[in-house]
Design a protein around this nucleic acid. Structure first.
Length: 222
DNA sequence: AACCAGGACGTGA
DNA sequence: TCACGTCATGGT
């Protein structure tokens, strides 16, 4: 089987159907994810929530992030100015369940400053500028650009790597940018397509590529 | 009781 | 550039 981005997408879509992704809070979705009812964040608070979640979920399960986002919603109403005025100790207590709380408290402040700039100037955020923010690496940057600001960029995460390796598409040590290019160079630059594609990869990985209990990939069989 | 979770950074070679 | 140690909590 010679895998291309388009073929892989068709197979995943057939297996799992539309995802309607960025996971928001259980309070809203009931299950941690809300397929079908994903609303693109049209408000500043919505965009900001995605930014916070993207940082908080680094190397951390979403259920932990979910708890933290509920606290941040209650305490700050997803207002960057209010978050920036919270004493560091208190912010760290709020985000403790998401792990790395000392690092992430700083990262959240940095991304908040960046966010305020973007919203104030009402300009489209640039990827290279976003990557300069402390605590924002390639995956976090692409998640923010794709899900908060609707820019056509592709998110590569650990799940995506695992799938591409097992399918024989990628080398184990392939760079982030090379994998991102593999998708972006042969697909239409469509925001919803990229959002759905990443969501489908996560769905597939959760089903078959969990490290504890890996199962045979149905994509490889046929 | 280990092992893992949708990474990123600082350091040294 | 790149490999490696570090950061930290909660779930399984």
């Amino acid at each position: 089987m010679k895998w291309t981005p388009k073929i892989l997408y068709r197979r995943l879509l057939k297996l799992y159907g539309p995802q309607g992704w960025w996971p928001v809070r259980c309070e809203i979705s009931g299950a941690g994810y809300h397929p079908e009812i994903f609303q693109v964040p049209s408000s500043s608070h919505g965009r900001y929530e995605v930014c916070l979640g993207a940082v908080l979920t680094q190397n951390t399960s979403w259920v932990q992030v979910d708890k933290v986002l509920n606290v941040l919603q209650r305490e700050t109403g997803f207002d960057p100015e209010r978050l920036l005025n919270v004493p560091e100790n208190l912010l760290q207590e709020w985000i403790r369940p998401a792990g790395y709380f000392r690092q992430k408290s700083r990262y959240l402040c940095q991304i908040s400053l960046w966010f305020e700039d973007i919203e104030r100037q009402q300009i489209e955020p640039g990827r290279s500028e976003l990557l300069k923010v402390q605590g924002v690496g390639p995956e976090t940057a692409d998640s923010i650009l794709l899900y908060a600001f609707h820019q056509p960029t592709f998110v590569i995460d650990a799940y995506t790597r695992r799938i591409l390796e097992h399918l024989g598409v990628a080398q184990p040590k392939a760079s982030y940018e090379s994998l991102r290019a593999w998708f972006m160079l042969s697909l239409p630059q469509d925001v919803v397509l990229f959002q759905e594609y990443h969501a489908l990869l996560v769905a597939h990985a959760k089903a078959y590529y969990q490290k504890g209990s890996p199962k045979p990939d149905p994509l490889k069989g046929a």
